[in-house]
């Protein structure tokens, strides 16, 4: 489905990377309220892809559709060839999808390390029977996961607080804890919902650096909802704009910011 407002320069880059996430014609209604109307979104492997738009544009709703929390009434969502809308929500993590939330959701009663280890849930062998019969290999496996978690905590500058309760950490660090938990699920696509929300200027720069390193070092594709235009401009390869639940435009950050429809949806049209 091609929309008139959409003007993607399809042949901008010579070798197009393979499509990882393909959202096609997704429509979501809550009763009479149309939250998303035939939204399309393509994220290519290895990209950092920004999803922007004014408040109420449906960015988080689209995120919730992709991560299986909302069921759109129409359209399709594919991740690396798998139809996400046919999967129960808890299967999506196993297909390579992980996300963070606008406000970090962490258990205050356990340590940072235990919190991030929750992310390894889908990577673990669930068969308790196997653990009984192969205790040695199960222990090695457990050790390996723990080491990987600690390595990622060190990578994100959180190793010093690994045995603290997340509640004692500053907001920016809590967000990084959530990020590490998501990464430990070994996702192909990482969804970040307003990662810079509530951060001060220097923290935003650090975060941008971290996201870029994650993409480069771990080969994770990133899709982020963000209001912080500085962050969007500095790290994204591609930006998709939504307004009032519809596609507005897509392109590089610079292209999108010059687009009249984008200026209109943020500032209103000139008389």
């Amino acid at each position: 489905m091609v929309l008139p407002a959409l003007s993607v320069p399809a042949d901008a880059q010579p070798p197009p990377r393979p499509e990882l996430l393909a959202v096609r014609g997704v429509s979501l209604r809550f009763g009479g309220l149309a939250v998303l109307s035939t939204v399309d979104l393509t994220v290519r492997a290895g990209e950092i892809h920004g999803l922007v738009g004014p408040n109420g544009a449906g960015k988080t709703s689209l995120f919730n559709c992709i991560s299986g929390l909302y069921r759109p009434q129409a359209g399709s969502i594919n991740l690396d060839g798998a139809d996400l809308l046919r999967c129960p929500p808890h299967r999506l993590a196993g297909l390579g999808l992980a996300r963070t939330f606008q406000h970090p959701i962490l258990d205050q009663h356990t340590s940072v390390l235990e919190n991030v280890l929750t992310g390894t849930y889908t990577c673990q062998d669930s068969a308790a029977v196997g653990r009984v019969f192969h205790p040695r290999s199960a222990l090695r496996e457990k050790d390996r996961r723990r080491q990987k978690a600690r390595a990622l905590l060190a990578y994100s500058g959180l190793i010093d607080v690994e045995d603290q309760s997340p509640g004692t950490l500053p907001h920016a660090e809590q967000k990084r804890v959530e990020l590490v938990r998501a990464l430990l699920a070994e996702p192909k696509l990482l969804l970040l919902d307003e990662p810079a929300g509530g951060l001060v200027h220097s923290e935003v720069d650090e975060l941008g650096e971290l996201i870029r390193r994650i993409r480069d070092d771990h080969g994770v594709t990133v899709l982020l909802v963000e209001h912080h235009m500085g962050l969007i401009s500095s790290i994204t390869d591609h930006v998709h704009v939504l307004a009032e639940g519809r596609n507005v435009t897509a392109g590089t950050a610079a292209e999108v910011q010059r687009h009249p429809a984008v200026i209109e949806s943020y500032l209103g049209s000139a008389p």
């Binding site: 999506l92 939330f101 929750t118 699920a185």
Partner: peptide, 16 residues
């Protein structure tokens, strides 16, 4: 413990 904290977060982490 993640279910206790947030069922939404638990589901997206792959927990049935």
């Amino acid at each position: 413990s993640l279910i206790r904290t947030s069922e939404v977060a638990a589901v997206t982490t792959g927990i049935p």
